[in-house]
Design a protein around this nucleic acid. Sequence first.
DNA 1: TAAAAAATACCCCTTTCGGGGTATAGGCTA
DNA 2: TAGCCTATACCCCGAAAGGGGTATTTTTTA
Lengths: 214, 214
Amino acid sequence: MVSGIKPTTVLIADDHQLFNDGLRNLLTFDGTPFRVVEQVYTGADVVPAIHTWRPDVVLLDINLPQRTGLDIARQIVREFPDVRVIIVSMYSYQKFVEELKVIGVAGYLLKSASQQELITCLDRVGQGGTYFDIRLGGKAGDLHLEDDFVKRFKLSPRELEIIVLMKHGLTTSEIAQRLFLSEETVKTHRKNIYYKLDINSLAELIRFANEQGL
Amino acid sequence: MVSGIKPTTVLIADDHQLFNDGLRNLLTFDGTPFRVVEQVYTGADVVPAIHTWRPDVVLLDINLPQRTGLDIARQIVREFPDVRVIIVSMYSYQKFVEELKVIGVAGYLLKSASQQELITCLDRVGQGGTYFDIRLGGKAGDLHLEDDFVKRFKLSPRELEIIVLMKHGLTTSEIAQRLFLSEETVKTHRKNIYYKLDINSLAELIRFANEQGL
DNA sequence: TAAAAAATACCCCTTTCGGGGTATAGGCTA
DNA sequence: TAGCCTATACCCCGAAAGGGGTATTTTTTA
């Protein structure tokens, strides 16, 4: 961090200009070990910018227009093995995380992270390490959010499990298959869930889950 | 803008800490006419913070967990008539804009706006005016995030509107009532949507919408 | 202006969902 | 051990969703 050390060069790729510029500012302070060499606002501009600047790290939004961050990440890792990719997203898409790790991205930051986490993440990745937001930690992360929910509505673990699957768009038969249950059992759980939450349709469950931030 | 003039006080309410902090930085520069008096990260903290600080302007995210920005905006306008509300959102959802204007918010900024637009918006609103992003002028539901979506799947505006309502958990009859349509018409749209997206249940629509970040 | 797209609305039919039950087995605990 | 919770699974039935049509009107666009 002492001046004189070569700074980590950073490319920021996010279509929300306010967020993009905000990130740049958060990385620009006295004695910063980072240098933002370029900012791009569309998916199409990412790869050309990497060509030009060869940044050490790319902060890549996963929800870019035109091309998805997933595709771009794949291409970067393939074509520029020494450019490290950090995904920045508002969602903790669990399945994406696994996929991204397989692809070979170096980090995953949530937009709800703090400046400190951003800097820690960039430090680690800049030094060749990886950083994945702790809130992505599968069940651990989910449960902490869901804890309240469970207590307030006296839901059993199984019921919570089924709520999550329903919210993710699995049909009754899909849930039954995945959990090795009879469809009738899933239906029973569903009935009990609806009774406890005082709702009576999948539509309402979705609304409810959205309202609870689940 | 000359120093000595009382600065416009600002409260920032956004659950994405990186964005929230980024905004604060974008408003902090030499000779800034703004002073960020507080930042909050949940819907529940907004009104108490206004009580304490009585800011001139609130930059309010519309997608807050716990309480929607819409509800909060309504309450602020009702209880604190001299506190001006600027909505900050990633969507340029026309219906929201109309609703928000009726409620009495003073501005609407997109997250894809530039720092210059942010400052212009705050300047105008701070001086008692209003500011609505020019990109809001389009037809119902043309948010740039959905733009892609629409093009890829050749969805009509009406279909997109219905997708959004379905995703929010409205039943067929609720959608029919809200849009002043026959249930049969909604069913027709739903059929066409399912055909275009190659799906066959609400569950799959939810999954699809989640995957598309819609 | 003619063709295409979008929006509206209905019919018929099958499948799934949702609400009312009942029932058995295992585990925890007061 | 008797009671309670949880998880499992089934039956019946009405309501809603889903899938196949057809058709008219308005709007957009080539």
